[in-house]
Simulated scan of single mutants.
Amino acid sequence: MRRLPYSGYAEMRWKNGQGVTREVCRFPTDEQYDWRISIATIREDGAFSRFAGYLRNISVLEGEGMFLTVDDQRSALIPQFQTMDFNGDSAVFCEVVGGPLLDFNVIYRRETTQATVCWLHEGAWQHQQGTMLLFNAGDLLDVTVDDERHTLQHYDSLLIDNPATVTVHAGSDTLFACVTLTSR
């Protein structure tokens, strides 16, 4: 189990050079990863980078939303904290609504990994297998893993690799992504 503070997220240029991503975590850490979680600022309309062999899940963290045109099919408006899945091989064009936005991305290799992303206000569950990442989109997030209590600041994450009992304590501003990554 590791706490991943927002201040420690590595900043890197997009593959297409048109923006910047802050990488939350990837596994393994080399260039041929099975999965990667990141947040990115989208300042203007434009094409997304292609990720051949990967599937993608995206959510809006800050901003009024976006439309994605994936292989010539325009999506409905994607508002804050609603997920959208698409193929990394696809041609994707993003239209930003009302100015810059910040998004939350999960990219995973379709041959090796299955990923789910849920936005929640509270929860208690048994994490059995794979990797779970909790990403705090609120001010503070109180999490208990087995008997250890953790407080996550805004945009901090908690990575859990072992079976555990996980409880997120609800607060008035509690909102977090629960990302589950399992091997195929």
Score class of each variant (00 low, 15 high):
residue 136 N to K: 10
residue 149 R to G: 09
residue 134 L to S: 06
residue 46 G to W: 03
residue 48 F to T: 05
residue 106 V to R: 04
residue 174 T to V: 04
residue 36 R to H: 10
residue 134 L to M: 03
residue 76 A to F: 07
residue 45 D to G: 11
residue 70 V to G: 10
residue 3 R to N: 05
residue 20 V to P: 10
residue 163 P to S: 01
residue 170 A to W: 01
residue 141 L to Q: 09
residue 30 D to P: 00
residue 134 L to E: 01
residue 139 D to T: 12
residue 87 N to L: 14
residue 14 W to L: 11
residue 67 F to E: 01
residue 172 S to H: 08
residue 71 D to M: 09
residue 135 F to G: 09
residue 125 W to R: 03
residue 5 P to W: 09
residue 82 Q to S: 15
residue 98 G to T: 01
residue 41 T to M: 11
residue 67 F to P: 12
residue 95 E to L: 11
residue 172 S to I: 06
residue 106 V to S: 06
residue 66 M to S: 11
residue 97 V to Y: 06
residue 78 I to E: 05
residue 145 V to D: 00
residue 166 V to H: 02
residue 117 V to L: 15
residue 70 V to Q: 08
residue 31 E to S: 12
residue 174 T to Q: 06
residue 148 E to P: 00
residue 43 R to P: 03
residue 164 A to P: 02
residue 88 G to T: 03
residue 55 L to D: 15
residue 48 F to G: 07
residue 4 L to Y: 08
residue 66 M to T: 03
residue 100 P to L: 03
residue 56 R to A: 07
residue 48 F to K: 05
residue 180 T to H: 13
residue 49 S to W: 04
residue 20 V to E: 10
residue 102 L to S: 13
residue 80 Q to T: 09
residue 136 N to L: 07
residue 67 F to D: 02
residue 142 D to C: 10
residue 2 R to S: 15
residue 83 T to V: 14
residue 40 A to G: 11
residue 149 R to N: 07
residue 41 T to P: 05
residue 59 S to H: 04
residue 115 A to H: 03
residue 94 C to P: 08
residue 9 Y to H: 14
residue 151 T to Q: 14
residue 160 I to V: 13
residue 99 G to N: 02
residue 91 A to Y: 10
residue 129 Q to F: 00
